[in-house]
Design a protein around this nucleic acid. Sequence first.
RNA 1: GCUGACGUAGCUCAACUGGUAGAGCGGCUGAUUUGUAAUCAGCAGGUUAAGGGUUCGAGUCCCUUCGUCAGCUCCA
Length: 647
Amino acid sequence: MAQELVLTLPDGAERRVPAGTTSRAVAEAIGPRLSKAALAARLSGAIVDLDRPLTAAGPFELLTEKDPDALAVLRHSCAHVLATAVRRLFPEAGIGFGPAIEEGFYYDFDVPRPFTPEDLERIEAEMRDVVRADESFVREEVEREEAARRFAGDPLKLERLAEIRDDEVISIYSDGRFSDLCRGPHVPSTGRIRHFKLLHAAGAYWRGDERRQVLQRIYGTAWFSQEDMDRYLRRLEEAKRRDHRILGRQLDLYSIQEDVGPGLILWHPKGAMLQFQLRRFIEDLVLERGYELVSTPHLTREQLFVRSGHLPLYAANQFPAIAAGEGEGEEVRYRVKPMNCPMHVLIYAAQQRSYRDLPLRLAEIANVYRNERSGALHGMLRVRGLTMDDAHIFLRPDQIEQEIYELLDLTDFVLRRTFGVEYRLDLATRPPQKLGGDEAWDAAEQALTAALERRGINYRLDQGGGAFYGPKIDVKFNDAIGREWQGTTIQLDFQLPERFELEYTGADNRPHRPVMIHRAIFGTLERFIGFLIEHFAGAFPLWLSPEQVRVLPISDTQLEAGRALHARLRAAGIRAHLDARNETLNYKVRDGELMKVPYLAVIGAREAEAGTVAVRVRGADVKQAVMTQDAFLDRLASDVRARARVP
RNA sequence: GCUGACGUAGCUCAACUGGUAGAGCGGCUGAUUUGUAAUCAGCAGGUUAAGGGUUCGAGUCCCUUCGUCAGCUCCA
C-alpha cells in the first residue's frame, strides 16, 4: 500500500504522488516539454537523480539547463564520462576522485605513466564515443561488502569506502561498463553531455597529501551550449592578456632575472613609480588615521625569532642564518627578517606604556624575505622578497571592536573607494591547534563579528581558518586566471604580547597585557601591484600612471612647442614625456596607446600657433579634443588631486 | 618541495626524421617632415639557459644543474 507524498512545486501548486514515484514520472505528468528538458530534480533543497524514487514530501523542483546548479551536475557527469573513456583506453588505470569544480571538472587517475597531450586527444575522442552511445547513469545502493567486492581492484576507492559511515548510504553509479563509487547526482544519460573539452593534465597528490602518491589529474570543462563554451574559452584567452606577467613586460614595469634569483623583483622605473605612488598614498593615509611610522633593520639576531616563537615553526620559510663573529670569537647568528612584528614589539617595549597611549599604531613599509617553495612562486603574486605595508597596533582588549571597525573602514577606503575593487571578506576563526584559552578566543571572535556586523558588510565564515595565535579577517581576490590570493589581512594576536611580556599601566595603576593586531592593507606591494595590473589591465588611473601624459609633436617644426608644453607639464608635477622621435604621428599614437598612457598631447602647426593642445584620451571613443593648455593642466591637476579613476 | 611540459636575438616565434641558426617587431644609421593605432631602406644583434655525454656531425638524442609554465602542497 503505497504511501502518498505531497510535493510542493515552485509555483505553489501541490502534487500528490505515491511514494516511490520517480522525478521523471512527475515531470512527464506535468508536461512533455519539461520532461525532456529535465536533468535532475531538487527535493527539499537536495538535488536528486531524475530516476531516483522519491521517498519524502517537500518543496519539489525540476532542474533544467536554466538552473545554475544543473551545470555542476552536468560537469560531474562529464567527469564520469572522462573516467569511462580513460578506463576503456587504459584498463589498468586506478580511479581517484572526479568532482565538478568552479568552471569545469577534473578526475584523478593512478596510472604508471603521465598522460601526454596526445593521450588527451584520444581520451576526448573516446569520450565523444561514450556520449554518442547515450548510456544511462544507473544508480544502485549496495551493502559495504558488495561495494568492496565491486571495487576490489581499486585501492583508492576502497580507501574512500572505508571512510563511509555505517549510517550513510553507499551508492554506485554506472554508465555502460564503468562503475564508480559516487554520491551523485547525475544527469539521466551520457547523451545529455554535449559540449565539453579537456583542458590539461597535471600531477596531484592523492587526497591533497604530499606524503601520498601523485595521481594524474585531467581537467576539463563542460557547458550546456557551444556558445557558452566558446565564451568561456574566449574569456580564458582574454584573461591571458590581462596577466600581470605579460603586461609587466610589455609595459616595462618589472623583471625577474635568473642572475638575481627567483621570486625577487627588479622594479623598473615605471613599476617603481607605481610603488612610490602607492607608498605615498598609504603613508599619508595612515598618518591621518593616527599611525606613527617606524623603520627597522632587515637583519636581526636569530635569538629574536626564537623568542617570538617564529623560528621553530617558520624556519622552513626563512632563509638560513648568517653567521657573524662578534667579540671574543663568539659566533652570533643573524637572520633576514620574514616579518616585522618582533621588532615593532620591541619598540613598544622600549618604554613604559600607559593605557592612555593605546591604541599605539606602528606602521612600516618594509622589505621582508621568505623562502617560499619554488613551485609556489608566481610572477609578482608570490615572491620571496616582499614589501609589506605592515602595521602593528597595540591596544586594550576593550578597544578591539572599535579598532577593527576602523580597519574595515580603512580597507574599504583603499580597495573600493579608491581603486573600485569589489572585495569579499573572510572571518577565520580558531583552528584546532591554538594558543590561548577559549575565553580570550570567544571575546576576540565576538569583537571581530561585532565590528563586521556594525559595518553591515557581507563576510564568509572560515571556520577553523584562523592563525594559531588569533582569529583574522582576510580579503581574497582572484587573478586573471581565476586563482584566489590573499590581499588585505587583519590578524588578532594574543601570543606575541605574552612571549614578550608586554604591559601597559591601567587606570588602576596595575600592569595589564595589551592585545596586538597585525595588519596589512595592500598586503604586499608586489602582490597588490600585480593585482592592480590585472584589475586595470595595465590602464592605470591618471594619479597612478607611471607616465601620465606623452607630448607628441607632429613634425620637427613643432618640436619647440612640444618641448615647451612638456616643460610646463613637468613644472606642474605631471609625469610627462616628450616623444621627439622622427616618426609619423600614427606611429607615435599607436605606441602611446599600446603603452596605455592616459593622455596623448598632440601639438601640430595649428596648436603651436594658437597655444592649444589636441588631447587624445586613452581608450575613449572621442578621439581628440582641442583645448587650451591651461584647461588641460587644470583638468590633470584636479583629477590627480582627487585620485579620480580616470580616464 | 612534488608531478609533468617547456627554455632559440631585447620581445613574439621559425629551423622536415641529427647535416651551414632564420623572420617579424624592437635597437642603431640614413632618407622622409608626417594630423590620431605601424613611412621606406640599410646595419648590428645568438657559446640555441649552463655544464657534461653519444655521434663524422647536436638547437634537435641522453644525463646533471638552473629557470619558466600548469597543477598539487603552502601562504601576503
